[in-house]
């Protein structure tokens, strides 16, 4: 049971043209080897502070989560092989900010610090962020976080600075297996579709699925999507993330009615309470 590399997939790797088109990541977890080169490259390039070293006991994962100071996180699922029950199956996946089409973090940001770049990515302007922390609770993926000593919110920028000069992001460049692929989003989606067929048919991974490649999902698709070998929650990701403006509209409608109840109640109490 082998998994062929993406180079053997029917769609050839395109070059990045840059400018105008929406750029993103396709993280093909079926060929991730868990080397953490992406984590290291990201820290180096973006000058992300280190975490307190600690050993989690959760397989090879000591990073544990995405956060203000971990913008790539390699998850390690170590479990008995589901087909035979004998031996170990490894699932490894390099997680990252999804650069959502409908980005909750950006929508709820009160200062306008979070914006969408010309590459279609979602970036925090650190000179504007005042550390209100709203994006932290709003992100459906638990990605963005406030740095305790600094007070502001930080997350993956999809290497905005590198993209501007025509370079690819540090993690994609460092990835030795092309598990992390960078490019125009529509091309990545096409390639991922072909790749999924290969993984499903040739390797027998029945649960294999694209996660976030579909524009009709709750957040309108991810700018950084994945090929997973099992359900998203197995990797610590939400099964059906959602952010919809119409949900917010119905909340405001409910709040308006509730405000009316308050005003009416107060008026009633005063009128009725009058002797």
């Amino acid at each position: 049971m082998t998994i062929s590399s993406p180079r053997q997939a029917s769609v050839p790797l395109p070059m990045w043209q840059g400018g105008g088109t929406r750029m993103g990541f396709f993280t093909d977890t079926s060929i991730c080897i868990g080397c953490k080169a992406c984590e290291v490259a990201c820290k180096e390039w973006n000058d992300v502070p280190d975490l307190d070293p600690s050993w989690s006991g959760n397989s090879y994962d000591n990073t544990l989560r995405l956060g203000a100071s971990s913008w790539r996180h390699v998850a390690f699922v170590e479990r008995p092989r589901p087909d035979t029950g004998v031996g170990v199956q490894w699932l490894m996946s390099s997680d990252v900010c999804k650069h959502c089409t409908r980005a909750a973090c950006m929508e709820v940001c009160p200062t306008g610090a979070i914006f969408r770049t010309e590459f279609g990515t979602v970036v925090v302007q650190e000179d504007v962020c005042n550390g209100c922390g709203y994006c932290v609770s709003a992100c459906p993926f638990g990605v963005i976080e406030r740095r305790a000593d600094d007070g502001r919110a930080f997350k993956c920028t999809l290497c905005y600075d590198r993209l501007k000069v025509g370079e690819q992001p540090a993690c994609a460049k460092a990835c030795p297996t092309q598990s992390i692929q960078f490019g125009p989003l529509d091309e990545l989606r096409e390639r991922a579709g072909a790749r999924l067929e290969v993984v499903k048919n040739e390797s027998g991974h029945e649960m294999a699925q694209l996660y976030g490649a579909d524009e009709t999902d709750g957040v309108g698709g991810f700018g950084a999507f994945f090929l997973l070998l099992d359900a998203p929650e197995v990797y610590g990701m939400p099964p059906a993330p959602s952010y919809q403006r119409r949900d917010v509209a119905t909340m405001w409608a409910a709040a308006s009615v509730a405000a009316g109840v308050l005003l009416g109640g107060v008026a009633g109490a005063i009128v009725w309470g009058r002797r």
């Binding site: 959760n58 989560r65 609770s137 459906p140 993926f141 406030r146 197995v234 610590g236």
Partner: peptide
């Protein structure tokens, strides 16, 4: 054999962040 991980979560770790508010 490695003990089975909880199939519905990743080591029981949170998915969304705790509120950052005080």
């Amino acid at each position: 054999m490695v003990p089975a991980a909880n199939p519905r979560s990743y080591y029981g770790l949170p998915i969304v962040k705790r509120p950052a508010w005080t």
